[in-house]
Design a protein around this nucleic acid. Structure first.
Lengths: 154, 154
DNA sequence: GAAGATTGACTTGTCAATCTTC
DNA sequence: GAAGATTGACAAGTCAATCTTC
């Protein structure tokens, strides 16, 4: 049975494991490739997207960051020559963020390092059944949270 | 089977669920009690500790924060009158951080709000079996990470 | 007037260097 | 000299206000 103590323990371990794994991955990626993990996240999202470009709003949702936070991050990445902003043809208020060649190169160098780290520090510790369990749980958690965000104004 | 795609999906959902749940909890706690979630974490750790006080190093490990980050956070909380630093008798290099009455009061007000949020946004979505799964996985992940931290200097 | 994006002021945390005590 | 803690300089994000386009 999952009593109160088990529940709280699950929550506490969830927080601690996340913090530890992410900070370790960030340190390793920075040390071995010189790329901040937050930049990697942007590059990976763009690379998965059709045409290697995304609207700001899509990045905001995928990265769980605020609008202004994204503006700053893209500022820095654009200055570093990794990505590029350009006007959206249909809606001139909006922008696209697109991957530049230098960004693709950086991602190619970072990908194997990061992926190895994700496996070593996290995925290797999960059995197939546990992997499915994670997917089930977090999908449900995320789906529940989405409705909150959208209905928050009431 | 947990193939490559399942693994990556599990990782991605883990990151997104964490970011979403934590930012929601932080927003709710700030709105309803006026307490930053990071301060709550400190108060909760201190409250659980024997004598309601902890050495800095223990807080650093529990909160997964750097030494200097902890210094800043305790600075602010001390200024707000929630906690107190005092010299450690055995080792005068070290300090204790202790809960003050105002901190206890703040925690008492925040606890029900926060706990309800943790349940609503996270724990309520887990079956007993899934709760056990989380505990198993994250315990293992944390144990593996600890050895890295300690053996990192080699 | 609302949506998309940016800016200024501020908050918070990190890193490297430093100070004190062991 | 190493461990515990702090400080200065900086990195990165949030919030509220603003500007542009719908």
């Amino acid at each position: 049975m999952a009593d109160v103590d088990s529940s709280r323990q699950a929550w506490r371990l969830f927080l601690q494991a996340h913090a530890q794994v992410v900070s370790t991955l960030a340190r390793e990626l920075e040390a071995e490739v010189g790329l901040p993990l937050t930049w990697y996240d942007v590059l990976a999202q763009l690379n998965m997207a059709p045409g290697q470009r995304l609207r700001s709003q899509q990045l905001v949702r995928a990265l769980v960051i605020t609008k202004s936070g994204l503006t700053r991050r893209i500022d820095r990445m654009e200055e570093a020559g990794l990505v590029e902003r350009f006007q959206c043809a249909e809606d001139r208020r909006g922008l696209f963020v697109a991957l530049l060649p230098a960004g693709e190169t950086a991602l190619a160098r970072a990908l194997p390092v990061h992926l190895a780290g994700v496996h070593r520090h996290f995925l290797d510790h999960l059995s197939p059944a546990q992997t499915e369990c994670m997917i089930d749980v977090f999908s449900k958690v995320l789906a529940a949270g989405d409705s909150i965000c959208e209905g928050a104004e009431t």
